Simulated scan of single mutants.
Amino acid sequence: MSQPVGKVSGGAKQTFTPPFSGDWALHIGAGLSSDEVAPNPPQALQSTARTMYSITLSWSAPAAAADGDVAASYIITRDGTAITTVTATTWTDQGLEESSSHTYAIHALDDAGNKSSSAAQLTVSTTGDTQAPQVTQVITVSGTELRVTFDEKVEAASAQTPGNYVITPAVAVTAALLSAEGTQATLTTAAHNPGQSYTIKVTGIKDRARVANTMAAQTLNYKFEATLQISELSPATYRLAQLAAGSAYYADRDFKLTTIPAVCQGFTWIMTENDDKERSDAHWLSFKANMAVTVMIAYDNGASTRPTWLDGWSDTGAEIGTSDDSPLHLYRRDFPAGEVVLGGNEGTSKTSMYLVLVKKADGTVADTTPPAVPKGLDFAG
């Protein structure tokens, strides 16, 4: 048998006992309520470090809320947009622009996910670039090319203005090109003189700061020390090489160098082909050099005769040892910058093809090329 139960009011526990014993008892308890108390906001928000591209923030944890809860984490908002949640009380915002201003708001969260009704707020800016660019290095790439290196990325328009570079003694700057990374300018110039010291004045170059900084005149010294460049080698199957004892010295044979005299030090080798040993062309091997050069011919010491074009070459008295059992005797001659032309080997089936060694000449070399012969006349020199 049941008895109607009246309305239960309030949240207290109620017990109803029927008027007869031994039947049943009804217990109704109010449900446990959820945590809806918000934490207090963080305190003492400040910027502890700034760079051109970052801002570091720190703050103090808030006091416990009315229900005893403390902050478990913090929501960080930059310029009205929530960007991260952290548990620590310090954080660094990176990847910002230089001289940029930002407003930060930090809310506290408790372990139930309640967010503080207010936030700690701070407006702070990254630092600005106030340093003008500086030149850190000037190097000569070639007699008509310089490379200028800056200590930061620079503006293309000013860096590519030839008039911002002045070379003394006078060498005209005809073009300037800034590298993709923005820190090097390659200058195209009139010809430099090998061994000459120069001064370059760089001015008017701007950096890439929001408010550009313009460098004052900066003067640097440099010296042009030309490096040997050999080009247009013919025949095309011949090769330039740096050889040592044990190296193959022909492009078409496996004969090896066994001994190399000291006189060969510093030379670049031209590997010829032994199949060309019987060539008798007046113009057989040629190349161009960007400066005066010393050329040595390593000629088969076992040959009974030498080609007439070797007349006038200096005999070094030195020989290169080979695995072919026939040493190569060294003859030497200097040539001015420009084209060097050598004749054929004029050998036999039993002799070997010559080798060529080239290096920068030690001093100024006179041009000994005969003048052009007027039409209709013979020239005997």
Results as ranks from 00 to 15, higher is better:
residue 157 A to M: 11
residue 254 D to N: 10
residue 132 A to T: 06
residue 91 W to M: 02
residue 15 T to F: 08
residue 282 A to P: 08
residue 190 A to P: 14
residue 246 G to H: 00
residue 58 S to H: 03
residue 274 N to A: 01
residue 263 V to A: 12
residue 117 S to R: 08
residue 273 E to G: 08
residue 334 D to Y: 06
residue 360 K to C: 04
residue 2 S to G: 12
residue 207 D to A: 06
residue 245 A to K: 07
residue 308 T to D: 15
residue 95 G to T: 04
residue 363 G to P: 11
residue 175 A to V: 05
residue 241 A to G: 00
residue 72 A to H: 11
residue 16 F to Q: 10
residue 120 A to L: 00
residue 109 L to F: 08
residue 110 D to I: 03
residue 355 L to E: 15
residue 103 T to L: 03
residue 102 H to S: 04
residue 16 F to G: 12
residue 228 L to K: 03
residue 176 A to P: 01
residue 314 S to A: 14
residue 184 Q to C: 11
residue 161 T to R: 13
residue 12 A to P: 05
residue 9 S to G: 15
residue 167 I to L: 05
residue 304 S to V: 10
residue 55 I to L: 02
residue 351 T to Q: 06
residue 243 L to R: 01
residue 150 F to Q: 02
residue 206 K to S: 15
residue 266 G to L: 00
residue 284 W to K: 14
residue 243 L to M: 00
residue 86 V to R: 02
residue 206 K to N: 13
residue 138 V to T: 00
residue 136 T to L: 04
residue 53 Y to C: 07
residue 133 P to H: 01
residue 251 A to T: 06
residue 136 T to E: 02
residue 11 G to L: 13
residue 203 T to K: 08
residue 27 H to Q: 12
residue 293 V to H: 05
residue 38 A to M: 10
residue 29 G to T: 07
residue 213 N to Q: 13
residue 262 A to V: 11
residue 233 L to M: 07
residue 112 A to M: 10
residue 285 L to I: 10
residue 257 L to P: 00
residue 221 N to V: 13
residue 12 A to L: 13
residue 53 Y to G: 06
residue 178 L to E: 08
residue 155 E to K: 06
residue 229 Q to F: 12
residue 17 T to P: 14
residue 133 P to R: 00
residue 300 D to P: 12
residue 316 T to D: 04
residue 312 G to N: 11
residue 205 I to D: 04
residue 68 G to S: 00
residue 198 Y to F: 01
residue 283 H to F: 04
residue 318 A to L: 12
residue 129 D to V: 03
residue 150 F to A: 06
residue 112 A to N: 15
residue 379 F to A: 12
residue 159 A to K: 12
residue 173 V to E: 06
residue 75 I to V: 15
residue 18 P to K: 09
residue 196 Q to D: 04
residue 309 W to V: 00
residue 14 Q to I: 10
residue 190 A to M: 09
residue 371 P to E: 02
residue 287 F to Q: 05
residue 262 A to P: 05
residue 321 G to D: 05
residue 70 V to S: 10
residue 325 D to G: 14
residue 27 H to C: 09
residue 26 L to C: 09
residue 221 N to F: 15
residue 183 T to H: 04
residue 101 S to L: 09
residue 114 N to P: 02
residue 357 L to N: 00
residue 307 P to Q: 03
residue 271 M to I: 04
residue 255 F to L: 13
residue 134 Q to P: 03
residue 355 L to W: 05
residue 92 T to V: 01
residue 23 D to K: 13
residue 98 E to M: 10
residue 162 P to W: 10
residue 361 A to R: 02
residue 179 S to K: 02
residue 265 Q to Y: 10
residue 53 Y to L: 11
residue 63 A to P: 07
residue 150 F to V: 00
residue 72 A to P: 07
residue 97 E to N: 13
residue 77 T to L: 14
residue 39 P to A: 09
residue 267 F to W: 03
residue 354 Y to L: 03
residue 290 N to R: 05
residue 354 Y to F: 08
residue 301 N to Y: 07
residue 264 C to V: 15
residue 262 A to K: 08
residue 95 G to P: 03
residue 96 L to A: 12
residue 166 V to Q: 14
residue 245 A to C: 09
residue 28 I to H: 08
residue 275 D to Q: 07
residue 164 N to R: 06
